[in-house]
Simulated assay, not measured.
Amino acid sequence: MSLRLSGVSYVHPNGQRALHDIDLQLEAGEQVAIIGPSGAGKTTLLRLLATSLQPTSGSLTLLEQQPVKLHGRPLRQLRSRIGLIHQSPPLPPRQRVVTAVLAGRLGQWSLARALLSLCYPLDATGAERELARLDLADKLFQRCDQLSGGQQQRVGIARTLYQQPDLLLADEPVSAMDPVLADHTLALLGEVARERGVPLIASLHAVELALRHFPRVLGLRDGRVLFDKASTQVSQQDLSALYANASLSTATPSPDSPVATVRPGRC
């Protein structure tokens, strides 16, 4: 079992409850998309799985360990095995792309090696290989602030892939990409997860992408799981209930989609 949440709830410091009694289990190699309206708790759930937050109640097991019981070096070691792709990756503006990608392994390197790599990239070939998967090999020595938003997202993905994590998390990883790039990138993430036999969990606003690229979909609303089922079993009624009272637009479904596309309004 790669991860298990049992009755997990989370309450923000201001008293607002973000998650309510979440039960979730993933085996190695499973791929799950989390969908739901803005404010549903998707990012909070991913932050719990990344160990940047701790559950207010319930139990959380990640990679056979319970983060709440870990401190210091054991907790850092666990975090080094978890890769989180951010919607807006934290890339220092003046940093070169090669250095940004190699930062994926800072948690696994010694301090001396990490500092040396900041001055002289120690594995430019490895960084270029991950960038090539995302059609960014030509940006290897470019500064991050010279990239578009979609290119910066892809650099963040390349950094996480270079990390080679045992658990792969993605928070709106393709929100700044055009449809073709978004399709290619999600297909790549799924391929890498299958190759490495690691679980992949991604939050997505684009319902059609979730249904097309993920075999399992979890619908989250108001911090509660409304459904957790195979993507082929997700119905229009499921989506209507999930996005009830949200700003919606319905488009003709693609040939690959089992139901009509429902797209929540942008925040």
Rank of each mutant, 00 (worst) to 15 (best):
A114K: 11
L140Y: 00
T160F: 02
L134T: 06
I157C: 04
A176L: 12
D145I: 10
G107F: 03
V101Y: 12
R105G: 11
R143S: 11
A127E: 08
S110Q: 14
Q153E: 11
L131I: 08
T160Y: 02
L106W: 01
G126H: 03
A103Y: 04
R143Q: 13
L134F: 06
S148Q: 01
L122R: 13
L134W: 04
Q108A: 14
T125C: 12
L122M: 09
S148E: 04
L102H: 07
R154H: 06
A124S: 11
L106F: 13
L161M: 07
E130C: 15
V174Q: 03
F141I: 00
Q95C: 01
Q146D: 12
D145S: 14
E172W: 09
Q152A: 10
D135F: 04
L140I: 14
L140N: 05
L167D: 12
V97M: 00
C119P: 01
E172F: 11
E128Q: 15
D171T: 08
R94P: 05
K139P: 02
R143L: 00
L168A: 06
L122C: 12
I157Q: 05
T99H: 12
D171E: 12
T160I: 14
L102K: 01
D123M: 12
R143G: 09
Q163S: 00
L168F: 11
R105F: 02
E172M: 13
A100L: 07
S117L: 08
Q142L: 06
A132G: 10
Q151N: 03
L116T: 07
V98I: 13
L134K: 01
Q146S: 14
G107C: 03
R96W: 00
P165Y: 04
G104W: 03
G150D: 08
G126A: 06
P121I: 15
I157F: 00
V155Y: 07
A137V: 05
V97A: 09
Q152G: 02
V155G: 04
P165I: 09
D138I: 09
G104V: 05
Y162M: 07
A100G: 08
D135S: 15
K139M: 12
S117H: 05
L115V: 15
A158W: 02
A132C: 14
L140A: 08
S117K: 02
R94T: 08
Q153L: 13
Q151G: 07
L167H: 06
A132T: 14
L106K: 01
L131W: 01
P92M: 02
T160C: 09
Q163T: 02
C144I: 01
L161F: 01
V174Y: 06
S117E: 14
I157P: 00
T125A: 15
L136H: 00
G104L: 06
P93M: 05
C144H: 04
S175P: 00
Q153F: 14
L136K: 02
G104N: 10
A127H: 02
A132R: 15
L169N: 09
